[in-house]
């Protein structure tokens, strides 16, 4: 594969996939340990009605209205989940289940009933995103990386996903100790004066930012998979949270890179003509990595809670 072909056609989708995978996997570590992994699933589903409503209100498929619509929908969903959980006194998983399925279904109905035929907004887009189309037309080869004119033509999604990743990394780095402490022992954290409720909400907000940013570029399938599969696989590789984070990043990057190339070239190796969805293949690879970790990971035995 030459630079003339790789850089314009594959480099940016690959980077966007990698950024999205890591941005979701990092908060996913804490969500999985807090047994809140479904929240990633919920967020990625509920953004659909938000995006549709934003389109209906503004009439365009531009970035900011859609991001704001998605964010509003995510906030509404978090509120609904809390309300259902408290008023119905049921476990959070059930409250998330009814909230995100209803809101996603509502989004699909809205989308079908509204006239979106003229724009690129449909249910498939919401699920798989459009990773393959995020190409860098101004690039002619590796030398374009040093060419300001070509760099100006980088897809917006790449810049947005890169910024999102920076925000996520800063959050996890800055609040590492409170996150770890309150995830392990919330009661103790509160006796230190830590505002664990605010911190938990901040974690969900960061996850929502990652989900919404990734959603537009890569669709909700990757988002759901990356919140859960790399962190869950990483947990089976080590008994230390610090090391688990590193493994989750490695698994997320492996999923993105392997998934992207298998989707693009795998069918040709098998003699088929077309490529398959990169987003779908990235999610599949992350699931396979998790399966391998579950079968062969060194720390997959449950050790805690010995008989009292």
């Amino acid at each position: 594969m030459s630079g003339e072909e790789f850089v314009p056609l594959s480099l940016t989708p690959l980077l966007i996939g990698m950024f999205a995978a890591v941005a979701c996997a990092l908060p996913g570590n804490f969500l999985v340990l807090r047994k809140q992994a479904l929240i990633g699933d919920a967020i990625s589903h509920v953004v659909l009605p938000g995006i549709v409503v934003a389109f209906l209100v503004t009439g365009t498929v531009s970035t900011w209205p859609m991001m704001i619509g998605a964010a509003v929908a995510a906030v509404v969903a978090v509120g609904l989940i809390e309300a259902i959980r408290r008023l119905g006194r049921i476990e959070p998983g059930a409250a998330m289940g009814v909230t995100f399925t209803s809101m996603f279904a509502g989004g699909v109905l809205l989308l079908e009933q509204s006239d979106t035929s003229t724009v690129h907004l449909d249910v498939e887009h919401a699920l798989y995103g459009n990773l393959e189309s995020l190409i860098w037309l101004d690039a002619v080869g590796w030398q374009s990386l040093w060419d300001p004119a070509a760099l100006a033509g980088l897809p917006n999604e790449l810049i947005r996903m890169g910024l999102t990743l920076i925000v996520v990394v800063c959050f996890v780095w800055l609040f590492w100790r409170p996150l770890k402490l309150s995830t392990f022992d919330e009661g103790f954290a509160r006796t230190l004066g830590m505002r664990t409720g605010v911190l938990g909400l901040a974690l969900v907000v960061i996850a929502a930012i990652a989900a919404v940013a990734a959603f537009d570029a890569v669709g909700s399938i990757i988002v759901i998979a990356m919140f859960i599969c790399p962190p869950a696989g990483a947990r089976l590789m080590t008994n230390r949270l610090e090391v688990q984070i590193v493994w989750s990043v490695i698994f997320a990057l492996m999923s993105a890179i392997l998934g992207y190339f298998i989707a693009g070239y795998g069918p040709q190796w098998l003699g088929a003509e077309n490529a398959v969805s990169a987003a779908g293949m990235i999610a599949t690879v992350s699931g396979l990595i998790l399966a391998l970790a579950a079968l062969f990971g060194p720390c997959r035995k449950r050790t805690g809670a010995p008989a009292v």
């Binding site: 022992d185 006796t191 809670a305």
Partner: peptide, 20 residues
């Protein structure tokens, strides 16, 4: 708060948590 130390019930945390 700095003058208080608290030991929660052992069963209140998840001992599978990845830490030493």
């Amino acid at each position: 708060r700095h003058r208080i130390a608290y030991v929660p019930q052992r069963a209140s945390v998840d001992w599978d948590f990845p830490t030493r």
